[in-house]
Simulated assay, not measured.
Amino acid sequence: MINYYGSLCTTMYELLHPIAPEDELQFYLQYANNKMNILEPLCGTGRFLVPFLKKGFNITGFDMSTEMLEELYRKAPYAQVFKSSIEEFRCKEKFDYIFITSGSFSLFLDKDTAFNVLMKMKESLTSKGKFVFAAETTANIIPDRKDYLEDCRVKTQEGYDLVLKTKNYYDKHKKILLSPSLYELYDGVDLLRKEEMDFRIKLYDFGELDELILKAGFKRIHVYSDFKKREIADINSKTFLYECYV
């Protein structure tokens, strides 16, 4: 399955990113208040959702990775989360605020899927709701790499070595960065387990998403280049932050 976070991937993710970056967390918190019904699609291990919970916000989340949700439940057993892909997401209630963090909107790899997600988010909002999300840009293009090379190595709680190896290929026509990933768990030199991940992200040019956002029914949008809400200066921004209003 494309972009599925399995067991070893989740372990490494949690060891490397146990908490949300403070500037990014504050960026998403600034839109929330205690009267809101809030939704976080693609909530993962809860590094954003759990701080929202601790501040008393009424927040619901979902993710398609069983392994990531299990990690979230270990942190917050009473969290309101459920398993679903965003394509399969169905909910009768409306939300005042929906957010997708960490550039994860780029996991939707084609124009039709991105548009359908935008439509679904718009339809899930109240009449005065807002949708805030981040997308990766073409400034993140990296050189092609045909062979697996070690990118990262961490120690697990059991003392094992967890190694991430990746290779890269950029499809310039579809503007998709493909990074096949291999996670390997070692006890010394002995390979205990391995896990493959087909990781891909869509990279966007400046202004490319604006038309889709408006077509989906959002009336007003703001685009920023960083978490301090500075307007985008040029096409070299590595992340576009979208603030969308119905």
Rank of each mutant, 00 (worst) to 15 (best):
residue 145 R to M: 04
residue 191 L to T: 15
residue 52 F to M: 09
residue 243 E to C: 07
residue 5 Y to V: 11
residue 68 M to Y: 09
residue 207 G to F: 09
residue 53 L to V: 01
residue 143 P to C: 10
residue 217 G to H: 07
residue 60 T to A: 09
residue 203 L to M: 03
residue 213 I to N: 13
residue 22 E to D: 14
residue 201 I to R: 05
residue 69 L to T: 08
residue 169 Y to T: 04
residue 25 L to S: 06
residue 147 D to S: 04
residue 60 T to S: 11
residue 136 E to P: 00
residue 150 E to A: 10
residue 215 K to D: 13
residue 160 Y to S: 03
residue 80 Q to E: 12
residue 241 L to A: 11
residue 222 H to D: 14
residue 65 S to P: 07
residue 39 L to F: 06
residue 23 D to E: 15
residue 97 Y to T: 03
residue 161 D to T: 10
residue 209 L to W: 11
residue 11 T to Q: 12
residue 185 L to R: 09
residue 158 E to N: 06
residue 59 I to N: 11
residue 137 T to I: 00
residue 97 Y to E: 02
residue 204 Y to V: 03
residue 184 E to N: 13
residue 17 H to Q: 08
residue 14 E to W: 07
residue 119 M to L: 12
residue 140 N to H: 03
residue 70 E to K: 14
residue 40 E to Y: 01
residue 65 S to D: 12
residue 23 D to Y: 15
residue 43 C to E: 03
residue 15 L to I: 14
residue 199 F to H: 11
residue 96 D to V: 05
residue 10 T to V: 07
residue 89 F to I: 02
residue 4 Y to V: 12
residue 44 G to M: 02
residue 216 A to K: 09
residue 120 K to F: 04
residue 129 G to D: 06
residue 60 T to H: 08
residue 25 L to T: 07
residue 89 F to W: 13
residue 97 Y to V: 02
residue 45 T to F: 01
residue 173 H to V: 12
residue 113 T to K: 14
residue 93 E to N: 09
residue 158 E to M: 03
residue 10 T to N: 09
residue 79 A to V: 05
residue 190 D to M: 13
residue 106 S to G: 11
residue 150 E to Y: 00
residue 235 I to R: 14
residue 207 G to N: 15
residue 61 G to Q: 09
residue 94 K to H: 09
